Amino acid sequence: MKLKLLTITFLGASLVACGGGGGGGGGGGDTTVAYQLTARINGVDVPNFVVKPGESKVLGLTTGQDVEIIASAPSTVLTTDNGVASAEVLANTATNYRARFTTSQHTIAKRVFAQSTNPLNTAGVTITVSSSDTSFGAVTPKVGDRFTYAETDKTLAGTTVPFPLSTHVVTAVTATGWNEEFVNPGPTVMSIVNFNSRGNRVGYQATANDPNGCKDARFNPEEKLLEFPLFQGKVYNSNWTTTCATDSQLETFSATVGAYEQVTTAGGVFKAFRIETNTVVSNSTDTRLPGRGYQQKVTVWFDPILGRNVKYSGQRTYPLGAPASNVAQFFLTDTTIDLVNVVKN
């Protein structure tokens, strides 16, 4: 089995770590209606933040900040969930909702709005609120949490490969970890992925993926891409064995946690750690790869309150030689993955 011919979605998903409590946005509704939500933080417009019917997006705050949600048409608030934060409501009209969030613990709040003249038009805002604590622990998801990603890859042959949207749905949570289904539009379940309580992959089972790829992989002791607590300046290392049937390969990983900063994707405006990572595979099971090795440098933005990667940019190189041109289309050079929608239970 060719372990590293997995689509890069698996790689991105492995970095998409633990989920966390909170709330989700609307589903259905008439998306042709000119109804949408925008936002301000402390009275300043949030650029590129627009939530349309059927969408749910994230807005990252720090304790003590005001958030203002502006509706383009009269609305009602369907859902109010403050997590462990205190929310002082400063305005609540048909088109303007403003509250000040304060908390001593990192937490998630939620607001879901419905257009007054068409209650099926709902839009959600998941609000992550950072406390003054600069350290973050692992987060446990809830069954039904959904995270949708957009991905584009580039191959050694120079081909750009856009993927269909992939939604990661939490299906089971136990004391030792959780399972997620990775679902493409259709919907088709592409794989079931097993995470431990730290949000690191321990296995996956492919269902509708590349018929020549690995169907049942195990990571021993874990694919340790995350180590908690997370804080700016932390450096950590790990290695693991990836096994499929009788094939296995050793992977060595290092990471440096950078700034806790604002980053914007189609899924919202997040507060996230910028983490620089490096992975080296020295004994790939793919015999078409010269030297059986490659290196992958990735910058990932990880929201430690949401418990998810929100943006991923990776470059893969082949320091021991590039694969032959006749198979170059099967080997990746660049990958970008963005979180585009979040539904929290």
Rank of each mutant, 00 (worst) to 15 (best):
F163T: 15
L225C: 07
S282Y: 02
T333M: 15
G54M: 07
K110W: 04
L90W: 05
L339Y: 13
T79A: 06
P229N: 04
G19H: 09
K224T: 12
R98H: 03
H168Q: 15
T252P: 04
F331W: 09
K52Q: 03
T117A: 10
N309S: 15
I192P: 08
L339I: 11
V46D: 04
T176E: 14
G64L: 12
T160L: 10
Q249H: 03
F10H: 05
S284C: 06
R201N: 06
L306I: 01
V33H: 07
T126Q: 02
S197D: 12
N121M: 06
S130V: 01
T285E: 05
G314I: 03
E88H: 04
E223Y: 08
P290L: 05
T335S: 15
A324H: 11
D216Y: 13
S248T: 01
S130Q: 12
T160F: 08
N341I: 02
S14F: 04
T265Q: 13
V84Q: 07
T160D: 14
N118G: 02
E88V: 09
W240G: 07
T264N: 08
D338Y: 09
G267S: 12
P187H: 12
K2N: 11
V280P: 09
K110P: 01
N309G: 14
T335H: 14
A266W: 09
G12N: 15
F231V: 05
L61V: 02
V343M: 08
T63L: 05
D153M: 05
V193P: 01
E223P: 02
T285L: 00
D303L: 00
G144C: 11
A259S: 09
S135M: 12
V33I: 08
G144K: 12
L59M: 00
Q105S: 15
G291W: 01
N196S: 11
E227Q: 14
P47V: 02
E88D: 10
T176Q: 15
R111Q: 01
P323S: 05
E68K: 12
C18K: 10
G22M: 08
N278K: 15
F101G: 00
L5F: 07
N209C: 09
V33M: 06
F113M: 04
T242Y: 09
S284W: 04
W178R: 06
L225V: 10
T333W: 14
S325W: 04
T287P: 14
I192E: 14
G307F: 03
A109S: 15
G64S: 13
D303A: 01
P162R: 10
D153I: 02
T241Q: 14
V343Q: 10
A99I: 10
G43D: 04
I70W: 02
A91Y: 02
G29C: 06
S72G: 06
Q295W: 04
D30I: 00
Q262L: 13
Y260F: 15
N278A: 10
Y312M: 03
E68F: 08
V16C: 12
D66W: 02
T241P: 13
P187Y: 12
I192R: 15
G321P: 12
N184W: 13
S248R: 04
G28L: 06
V89P: 06
N82C: 04
T9I: 03
T241Y: 11
S325T: 06
A259Q: 07
A266P: 13
T148V: 08
G27Q: 08
D216C: 05
F228T: 06
E227K: 04
Y97E: 01
R100L: 03
F273R: 07
